[in-house]
Design a protein around this nucleic acid. Structure first.
Length: 534
RNA sequence: GGGCCGGUAGCUCAGUCAGGUAGAGCGACGGACUCUUAAUCCGUCGGUCGGGGGUUCAACUCCCUCCCGGCCCGCCA
């Protein structure tokens, strides 16, 4: 990153431009469809998205492609999966045994455990593609398996096998355990479908390798092969990751690629050199991003600590999610589901700074630059209800009541466009979902029916008196004040009196600012409820 | 052991690249609203910028060193 711009994507774009690339500029990301795609995987898409957006704004034609590295072998069975509707399920709910028998087999050759897609790989690739769509990021999905099968990878495969000695020496400087017999190709066994590392001979003219199906190492474990001895073409197998990655750069003409910090010191340095010395191609502009944590813990598909984009979008708008990726990629960010309100408020502030509705000299340059890429459309008339206020509105299902309450607080007026009201109400739904999932201080539900109660005589009398007061017609603030008066007049502790009110309306001991909340409700309903008549 | 990236207020983070007297939001605390009851407004408190050394008139910023955390060096985004 040469220059210093307010927005990191401009630094990258500068560097891409300095190489004077041919149009279209190609931006790539990629993951193995190993399991439930989660928020962390979205780095691969969102980092590219912003760079693509900046480059397009500068007049370039840009392709944002995403490789599903779906010829990778299943190395372990994840603890949790997701069906095509994003329902997270444990292993017990699918045929786990079938998955276990497919260890060592490419994802595209494993049946979809849900029986819906063509394969395990296709299933999870599809989920990721739909996530990108939901966030409004158009990416071209490219199947790695398809690249092999169609022959698009055949030339690079031949190239690396022709230079096998150099490839081996090169890799050995980056990794231990690369021995004399190392061959940079993993054929797929024609009998059992597993990949194997055991290549016995290479025929460059025929484009084939002879192998023994003796399995492959996965972490500390070894996945057994079936022992079959056979011959595979260059299309029937795959390059090891360290070679496959630079091969993708070459075949797809990649100009920029972001990657996680796990690759920063491993695959990237070797990949650069392999690209230049084996594939005779210049590696893309790189960018390392830090990993997110989820509620302070590492995201992990295998451990099941994941939050999917689908889940995130149930809690906040796509624009807020995009904003999450605007911040410094070099720093580890925590996605704190307990405090979604803070993230959303931060976005709202970012937006106000952009529109000049709030002053923040530090934030202003970033807001000016990045905000238009975060929203679908720059619209000054939009209405953003503070997230926790939206959660308060979510205590009732009554749409009119929600609108009235927001109006009374000055968020809507006669000039508010209908679309702005709709979007604001959309946040109410999300905040409601949040309150329920977190079961937090906003998870109160206005009770349609009279809850079970057990009040002493004084409290009952005080409630009846308050009912009479409400029946006279007062606004919320006045009712709030009167509650203190009424409690004292009847010798009831103020706290106990509020608790009684919360019991009646929310069937709980706590809740929102009660008097003002009641002031928004239908008067006859409030009076009846205070009299415990229904 | 070696390497990369981080370590700034209780929390989340800007600021470090071009050295010039520490910033924001949230929280906490206090106050206002005839009112202890989570939506509003005002105010206050709050940091030896991980520790130490060096360069400089001047260091959060540059150099060295140490500590802590994550990651990589095991064909795993």
């Amino acid at each position: 990153m040469s220059d210093h711009n307010a927005f990191w994507a401009d630094d990258i774009a500068d560097e891409v431009e300095s190489r004077d690339p041919d149009d279209p500029v190609v931006i790539k990301g990629g993951v193995s469809p190993s399991g439930v795609p989660h928020l962390g995987h979205f780095n691969e898409i969102m980092r590219g998205y912003f760079v693509a957006a900046v480059l397009r704004e500068r007049g370039h034609e840009v392709r944002q492609v995403f490789t599903s590295d779906d010829r990778d072998a299943l190395r372990g069975v994840p603890r949790r999966l997701a069906d095509s509707d994003w329902n997270l399920v444990g292993l017990g709910e699918v045929d786990a045994g079938a998955l276990g028998r497919n260890l060592g087999t490419p994802y595209t050759d494993i049946p979809d455990p849900f029986g819906e897609s063509d394969s395990y790989g296709a299933h999870f690739t599809d989920l990721l593609a739909r996530s990108a769509e939901a966030v409004g990021v158009p990416v071209e999905m490219v199947s790695n398996t398809a690249l092999y099968e169609s022959g698009e990878f055949e030339a690079v495969t031949r190239e690396v096998l022709a230079k096998a000695d150099r490839a081996r020496e090169l890799l050995a400087t980056y990794q231990d355990g690369v021995g004399e017999d190392y061959v940079p190709f993993m054929p797929q066994c024609s009998e059992c479908g597993r990949l194997t590392q055991d290549v016995r001979g290479v025929d460059l003219d025929d484009g084939t390798v002879d192998y023994v199906c003796s399995g492959l190492d996965a972490g500390g474990d070894h996945i057994e092969g079936c022992g079959h001895e056979g011959t595979a073409t260059f299309r029937e197998g795959k390059l090891p990751w360290r070679f496959e990655w630079p091969a993708q750069w070459r075949v797809l003409g990649v100009d920029f690629e972001p990657f996680g910090k796990d690759h920063a010191e491993g695959s990237w340095p070797s990949g650069q050199e392999i690209a230049r010395q084996v594939f005779d191609t210049e590696p893309p502009v790189p960018m390392t991003y830090e990993w997110f944590t989820l509620d302070g813990e590492p995201l992990s598909s295998s451990a099941g600590n994941v939050v999917t984009v689908d889940e995130v979008l149930a809690l906040l708008e796509p624009a807020v999610l995009r904003y999450f990726f605007v911040r410094n990629p070099q720093r580890a960010k925590d996605f704190d589901t307990e405090r979604i309100d803070l993230l959303v408020d931060e976005f709202d502030r970012f937006e106000r700074v952009y529109f000049g509705e709030e002053t923040d000299a530090d934030l202003k340059p970033l807001a000016d630059r990045a905000y238009p890429f975060v929203v679908d459309e720059v619209r000054p008339e939009r209405v953003r209800l503070p997230y926790t206020f939206a959660a308060v509105l979510g205590m009732t299902d009554d749409r009119d009541l929600r609108v009235r309450m927001a109006r009374n607080q000055g968020f809507f007026d006669d000039d508010t466009p209908e679309w702005a009201v709709e979007e604001a109400l959309g946040r109410v739904e999300r905040a409601r979902t949040w309150a329920e999932r977190m079961d937090n201080a906003y998870n109160y539900r206005l009770q349609a029916d009279l809850p079970e109660t057990d009040f002493d005589a004084d409290t009952a009398a005080a409630l009846t008196a308050l009912a009479d007061f409400v029946a006279e017609g007062h606004d919320g603030e006045t009712i709030q004040g009167q509650m203190y008066e009424t409690a004292r007049e009847h010798g009831v502790e103020v706290g106990d009196f509020f608790a009684a009110g919360y019991r009646l309306f929310f069937d709980d001991t706590e809740g929102p600012r009660l008097g003002e909340f009641l002031g928004e409700l239908d008067e006859s309903f409030v009076v009846k409820r205070l009299r415990r008549e229904g």
